[in-house]
């Protein structure tokens, strides 16, 4: 494992911890999109179908369990926790996330590396992860006062994707036959979706102002 991959995984882990911290200690999920969180739970469920059959390393298995456990518990908190769910901006979080799932599934059935159930589900999870942030970005645009933790959560998620691209560049030059077009293209699309957010995040940081995305 290279430094970019490790840094990417750690950034991903921190993003989840920041979100859980907000939900668990402040008992608030204001500004967080339940739609995006549900999509992530689905992404991990589809991708980690091989968790008990394809052993790679202890690190790998533990991280998979953390991402599965955290994503489902975040969804649970936002839907059912009697205090947390009151802070959910239901009227603002209107993105039709079901409309993302079907096209991703169809695309995975058409474009995949191997037509098997596990491989199609893996590919589906890559396509879905690429667009899963969209409901969150739309919600951020509608939120007048984005609190620091929510801004940091999205920033860390974007940083994780950027680091994964550096990881692929590194692996491409250091490993023989390391070519994964599906992973790379969907990963690149995913990272580009953050470009706009990054721009405004750094602007607000530079000018020491609160983060605000223009409509």
């Amino acid at each position: 494992m290279n430094i970019f991959r490790l840094a990417g995984d750690m950034t991903h882990l921190f993003s989840v911890l920041v979100l859980l911290l907000k939900i668990h200690t402040i008992k608030s999920c204001a500004g967080v999109s339940l739609k995006t969180q549900e999509l992530y739970a689905l992404v991990f469920a589809a991708r980690y179908l091989d968790i008990f059959t394809n052993y790679i390393s202890l690190y790998n298995t533990v991280m998979k369990l953390i991402f599965l456990g955290s994503s489902f518990s975040i969804v649970w908190y936002m839907r059912y926790h009697k205090i947390v769910r009151r802070s959910y901006d239901k009227d603002q979080d209107t993105f039709r996330h079901y409309f993302l799932i079907l096209p991703c599934l169809l695309l995975a059935l058409l474009i995949n590396e191997k037509f098997t159930f596990k491989e199609v589900m893996w590919t589906f999870s890559l396509y879905l992860e690429a667009v899963a942030i969209l409901p969150q970005l739309v919600l951020l645009q509608r939120t007048r006062n984005i609190d620091n933790l929510t801004g940091q959560y999205v920033f860390l998620l974007g940083a994780y994707r950027a680091l994964y691209i550096l990881n692929w560049v590194y692996r491409y030059f250091t490993e023989p036959h390391f070519v994964h077009w599906i992973t790379w293209v969907s990963g690149l699309v995913q990272t580009l979706l953050y470009a706009d957010f990054f721009y405004y995040y750094f602007q607000s940081w530079k000018n020491n102002q609160k983060l605000h995305l223009p409509a």
Partner: peptide, 10 residues
């Protein structure tokens, strides 16, 4: 080696 199915990334 079946590189494709060796999904070692998260």
């Amino acid at each position: 080696l079946d590189k494709i199915l060796y999904h070692d990334e998260l």
